[in-house]
Design a protein around this nucleic acid. Structure first.
Lengths: 331, 331
DNA sequence: ATGAAAGCGCTAACAA
DNA sequence: TTGTTAGCGCTTTCAT
């Protein structure tokens, strides 16, 4: 049996209420008794039971984080941002992978709510009305990171993916490429669709027709990048530039093109997305869109603390700045 | 106010004990009443409160995971292994970063114990007697992953780092390099020391004297790799091969050497460590030591479930197999 | 097969 | 400033 608050109270000759007060730093305790209590806490090695505390106070100081895949370099940096701010505000994180699978996501929301988390951070994937419905079965606040809900009911932190993709494509067009190719993710995920739409918008503004053969939608992996560019370069009509929706994929593109004897950026200009650490870990170094992943997580967590604290929040749809950094994969 | 077990009991005309039984799949319930209860649970949208349950049952079905840095590609894959197995056994993970900082680690152990986790997974960093002491203040089982405690009191899952480093160095020596260089981490971390010792052992077996100028101990980063190799190659006496203690660093080594005009593997052979996804995302592709990171996490979590279940465990110090994969950074 | 009731360890009025 | 006491929502004997 472990030491309880009751043991401490008895040993220190005070009531459990007083012990509770000193543990919770309630100022209404005479310094001398505080000292006495502290000493016996120390002596007995008392460790407050957070579960009991949670039941009584209806606060667990833990938040749930639902993330597509923690082993992805993108999300793991985001997670680090979350965790650092959570620590700062004394919260713990229950972390779960969803693989952007809707059933899993819904399931996880439920589990976390059962565990009485004080708030939920939801990342990636789509936010459907069903998600919103699940969220609403509890009063725990929810913040979305790197995704958003179209009804605008749930606060979120993002960059403007559409504009970013537009700018990258535009940059390539301005460099003289008639139609830069696009290699991105499946557009059933909203953010991927945003990037695709940004790309299209830039094309529409400049060229007349759009060559569908310059557009590839696949998974966000290194191998998909290789496969994608090899397909593009095996066509009659070959692109001279390509906008790739993730760095990992973009590195695949670079290597795939190099394997075929193409020189980057001379024969093919490449722009990636995210500016993960990978971007500088490839030769030529990758021009890409800087998306502040760590900050995305940090800001989302900070926002969540405000909601959990019932503070006033003015800005519910936070858009963080992005920018393009040109390195050696573009001329 | 949310729905409690009491509400369900009242609405279904049974006692809370019966509701509890159906929620927990206790077989001692007449099928018809089970059905009735299930129906009213559905109707009311009852969601069991895991905190209350945890207080009453003294089980939280959550385990704490202390990890050096979730944004590191190495640990994030490990974490994914942990999480997948945890999910399989219905556990949730409280994840925290320690940065291998002893104070933080001790702190986190305490916090997790306060939260009444059913077990702890501890990764990276050193395990000191103080750690062991902290662990012992609770009956929650602990499993170490990618680290071990020298007293052998705490179960752990690892590969044999010393042997792996020995083999890599030996391979290089057998290829005709008199003294391959070593670029690794600070040896105040036990695992880094193991790798260093494995390297030394291989040298001692073959060559007479050891050139200390061929040995660099720095942080495990891409930039440290670049810096390290540039230093080595600026010396009078230059290495023709190098064993690098992490892939990220090794890629830095490759690029650093390439920047100086060296050809890999012709002028310099490189072997990395870990076989992270990065190893195939560089040209030339990286020869490296395959360490099954995902499995390390998965096996550690599996082992922990056995302890939490109070099952008999025969093998307490699990050593997973490793092997060297030769790719294009070696001849 | 079901119910009654005693906790689990703590917080938070309320009193004193 | 301190103590008393009633929960928080559930599990788990122990009866029945």
């Amino acid at each position: 049996m472990s030491i309880t608050i009751y043991d401490v109270a008895r040993e220190a000759n005070v009531s459990m209420a007083t012990v509770s007060r000193v543990v919770n730093n309630n100022p209404n305790v005479k310094p001398s008794t505080r000292k006495k209590v502290l000493k016996t806490i120390e002596r007995l090695g008392y460790r407050p039971n957070a579960v009991a505390r949670g039941l009584a106070s209806k606060k667990t100081t833990t938040v749930g984080a639902i993330i597509p895949d923690i082993s992805s370099i993108f999300f793991s940096e985001l997670a680090r941002g979350i965790e650092d701010i959570a620590t700062m505000y004394k919260y713990n994180i229950i972390l779960s992978n969803s693989d952007q699978n809707k059933e899993k996501e819904l399931q996880l929301i439920n589990t976390m709510l059962e565990k009485q988390v004080d708030g939920i951070l939801f990342m990636g994937g789509n936010v459907t009305p069903e998600h919103v419905q699940h969220f609403s079965t509890s009063s725990a606040p929810v913040v979305l990171a790197a995704t958003y809900d179209e009804t605008g009911k749930i606060p979120s932190v993002n960059i403007d993916y559409k504009v970013a993709a537009y700018e990258a494509t535009k940059l390539l067009i301005d460099k003289g490429h008639k139609q830069p190719a696009f290699i991105g993710g499946q557009v059933d995920i909203k953010l991927n669709l945003d990037k695709y739409e940004g790309y299209l918008k830039a094309l529409q503004e400049s060229s007349a027709e759009i060559n569908e053969n310059f557009i590839i939608k696949d998974s966000y992996s290194y191998n998909a990048g290789i496969k994608g560019i090899k397909k593009l370069l095996s066509q009659e009509d070959k692109p001279t530039a390509v906008f790739v929706a993730s760095d990992e994929m973009a590195i695949g593109v670079i290597h795939g093109a190099q394997d075929l004897g193409y020189k980057i950026p001379e024969d093919l200009e490449v722009i990636g997305f995210n500016n993960t650490r990978l971007a500088t870990m490839v030769r030529p170094t990758l021009s890409t869109i800087i998306q502040p992943m760590y900050d995305l997580g940090a800001v989302a967590m900070r926002l969540l603390t405000k909601y959990m604290n019932k503070e006033e929040v003015t800005e519910t749809e936070v858009i963080l700045p992005h920018r393009i950094i040109e390195r050696d994969s573009t001329k």
